[in-house]
């Protein structure tokens, strides 16, 4: 059956793209997972691994009884999350929080995805609007989404809706500031 299915394209092998590819492949749908690193580097990333954690190493509270993010953890586990599975395998002590060894975590996500028979990895940047014949695409390009793709997202509103588009233009794509890099003191 799988041979007959066209692949779904997932752009970006961060946390969201990794989960999307994993869910598709485990449902029996072939996936082409596009990741621009290490071909194109970013200011935030240090490795070529999938699901690299660029800021904290914590997934926050793991308390599924009284914490909203804790209950989200538990829902994800029940849905078969690769991120939660890899996190449990790379856990470091952090009180009530679920924190991980970031290298071990990303290595496990990378291993799971690259060894899945229905996932094909394509290294390289997808810039602009994805080709017409990609009839199902998941864009998971993260907070550093390139300007080319960001502009492409705006463009399709195009003709016939120009006025509405203009009026709301400023609201279509926003930015705030994210963080990267944290501080890691060693040898106290």
């Amino acid at each position: 059956m799988n041979e007959k299915l066209k692949p779904v394209h997932v752009i970006g092998a961060g946390l969201a793209g990794s989960e999307a590819a994993w869910a598709l492949a485990n449902a029996g749908v072939p996936v082409i997972l596009h990741e621009m690193r290490p071909v194109v580097k970013t200011d935030a990333h240090h490795t070529a691994d999938f699901a690299e954690l660029v800021c904290s190493n914590s997934f926050r509270s793991d308390d599924s009884e009284t914490s909203a993010v804790g209950v989200l953890h538990e829902e994800m586990r029940r849905m078969g999350s690769i991120v939660m599975r890899a996190a449990m395998g790379a856990q470091v002590p952090a009180g009530g929080a679920l924190a991980v060894d970031r290298d071990g975590f990303s290595a496990e996500v990378t291993r799971a995805l690259t060894s899945h028979p229905l996932i094909t990895i394509e290294l390289g940047e997808v810039s602009g609007i994805p080709p017409e014949d990609w009839d199902s695409v998941i864009v998971a390009t993260g907070p550093l989404t390139s300007d080319a793709l960001a502009r492409a997202i705006r463009r399709p509103h195009g003709r016939g809706r120009t006025r509405l588009f203009r009026r709301h233009r400023a609201h279509h794509l926003s930015r705030n500031r994210g963080y990267v890099g944290l501080l890691v003191p060693v040898a106290l």
Binding site: P143, N176, V180, L188
Partner: peptide, 18 residues
């Protein structure tokens, strides 16, 4: 006082859709 820093903090853009 004698800590070494393996990585320092920084700031990146955070683009998101409406």
């Amino acid at each position: 006082r004698n800590a070494e820093f393996a990585r320092l903090g920084g700031l990146h853009r955070n683009t998101f859709l409406n």
